[in-house]
Amino acid sequence: MTRVVAELAGLDMRFGEGAGAVHALDKVDLLVHEGEVLGLVGESGSGKSTLGRCLLRLLQPTGGRVALDGDDITDWPERRLRKLRARMSMVFQDPWSALNPRMSIRRLIEEPLKLHTQLGRAARRTEAERLAERVHLAAAQLDRTPAELSGGQLQRVCIARAIATRPSLIVLDEPTSSLDLSVRAGILDLLGELRAETAVSMVFITHDLATLRLIADRVAVLYLGRVLEEGPTEAVMDRPAHPYTQALLSAHLPADPRERPKRIRLEGEIPSPLDRITGCPFQTRCPLVEKQCRIGRPPLLSAGPGQTAACVRLIDGSNRIAA
């Protein structure tokens, strides 16, 4: 196995105190290896963005450990983290809130170069133009402000900023969701090239299962702040072990009106992240739920080579939802 670049151990994140506290991450363990793309999928609100922010220490977790290149950075103050910032970056989920509306696109792309590199003014300018070209932005768009670009164009500005300093770890939060397929393919190509050139590791958060298949080496599935399943992309997507993963994959919409999705419909309430859950977080909607699912927290069990899932029904192989 290649070197571990980042490690989350027993990561816990709560927002707020007492009865109103949201338990966004519940003892998450995760490794990111050098040069690997780790895909992160899961229910909306399950803690994917929070996980990404904790990993880059944009948030201070309320429990557990974050390690980068072997250093435990969980409690590092921002002053100390600043030295690391050039080596890690994030593409935020919402490009409209991530960019200063008063800055030109050129300045926005130059900003990380100015903060984290020694490049002079002329070199920064050339580099910004090169980056813009790599994300398929036209040179004429560099002198505009964010309000003058479309959603997909803004998303590409964010990607250009994130790769500007050639970081070793990038968290990309829905980086291609508002791109059409041809631009999306171009961006995925670019990320692939970057990986080949610099061995960058990426955490790629997406709802698009087809994109996941194209880019991710491994996938982790989140639900209500817990990792329910993890493994090599093909294994998880072709033989999903956890009932939630099975339901998720079944809801994919085919792009052909003559084909109908065979969707596993989930009944039941999604538990509130404001409440404590005993047992499996999916128990309220799982078609396969049984008594023991409500008792202890299901451990991650082996579901194949390198694949694990937190479902007690794996033990006797009764974890498949009948089609």
Partner: peptide, 23 residues
């Protein structure tokens, strides 16, 4: 557009689809 479903896209083959947006 319809031919370019993500299932049919392969990395490395994407760029041929697009082209610069019109000025």
């Amino acid at each position: 557009l319809l031919a370019a479903t993500p299932e049919r896209l392969r990395l490395g083959a994407g760029l041929r689809l697009g082209g610069p947006p019109p000025n």
